[in-house]
């Protein structure tokens, strides 16, 4: 029989969880609305908004754009961020600290400020409304997340294992491939995931550098909801919610399996 404080704490945690989840969960019934309205509670039931998402080229194109951009960003930011993490971790303590502070500025600078700066530069460079422009801007925003995730694994990585591998006959590249990389892989993977999500749901910079010919999903959601209250937004929200939940559950299961061995 658990004691009273434990029961109380459990109930409190449940309350916080409900508060955190409620806005997300509201979206799910709305996506099955029978009418073209975002009213809550919804009236009637239909799959039409899901059908609209998969058939309307505005939605499918923006979704594909976001997916492509986020995948490229995940790859580029993970490579660059991982290399940066090595540099920061293995530089002298002071230099490393300074570099790190510099590298995570995109995370602390207000998004709008960054967006204005990027927009101004992109106008001159003709990068507005281009995939390259989106990839560059999102990579910059994603690198700090990779840096932090990989640096965390590097800090608990025992460098003496590299010395040992070297004494057993492994050159530097082989040491990295067979010892360092496998051991910091969880950090790199979670960095990649963060990078993907950072790009996939980025809206502020995207609003500035978007064009009628290149829209990402968040931009499409935003314009569709400001122009007409289209419940397709709720359908998209529900799909993204399910997709991210699956990724997180998969991640947890993977982590548990690794933790056992």
């Amino acid at each position: 029989m658990p004691s009273f404080p434990r029961v109380f704490l459990g109930l409190f945690c449940l309350l916080v969880a409900v508060l955190l989840l409620a806005p997300t969960l509201v979206v799910i019934p709305m996506s099955f609305n029978g009418n073209k309205s975002l009213a809550f509670p919804p009236v009637g039931f239909s799959w039409q908004w899901y059908a609209n998402f998969f058939s309307n080229p505005d939605w499918t194109t923006s979704f594909t754009n976001s997916l492509i951009i986020a995948l490229i960003v995940a790859v580029v930011a993970t490579v660059v961020g991982t290399l940066a993490a090595f540099g920061v971790t293995r530089a002298a303590a002071r230099t490393g600290g300074l570099l790190r502070a510099l590298l995570i500025t995109p995370m602390v600078v207000p998004g709008v400020v960054l967006a204005i700066g990027i927009y101004a530069v992109y106008l001159d460079a003709h990068l507005v409304g281009t995939v390259v422009g989106f990839v560059l801007a999102h990579t910059m925003l994603a690198i700090p997340f990779v840096l932090i995730a990989v640096q965390a694994s590097l800090e608990v990585f025992d460098r003496r294992l590299e010395t040992a591998a070297s004494s057993l006959g492994a050159g530097r590249l082989t040491v990295f491939r067979t010892v360092t990389l496998p051991l910091i892989l969880p950090g790199i993977l979670s960095g990649a995931l963060f990078a993907f999500i950072t790009s996939f749901d980025e809206i502020i910079v995207a609003l500035f550098i978007t064009s009628p010919y290149l829209k990402t999903l968040p931009v499409q959601i935003y314009t569709s909801i400001t122009r007409d209250a289209d419940p397709t937004v709720a359908a998209v929200g529900t799909l993204l919610f399910i997709a991210t939940s699956l990724i997180i559950v998969a991640g947890l299961l993977f982590g548990m399996r690794r933790g056992r061995t």
Partner: peptide
């Protein structure tokens, strides 16, 4: 001559076994 070309066995105080490999894989590594 770098350490990986010297063909010398080294045993460390802190064991330095590779945690992601089984005992057999560790010994097979060199």
């Amino acid at each position: 001559l770098p350490s990986h070309k010297r063909n010398i066995g080294v045993v460390f105080q802190h064991y330095a076994l590779f945690p992601h490999m089984t005992v057999g894989k560790n010994v097979a590594y060199p």
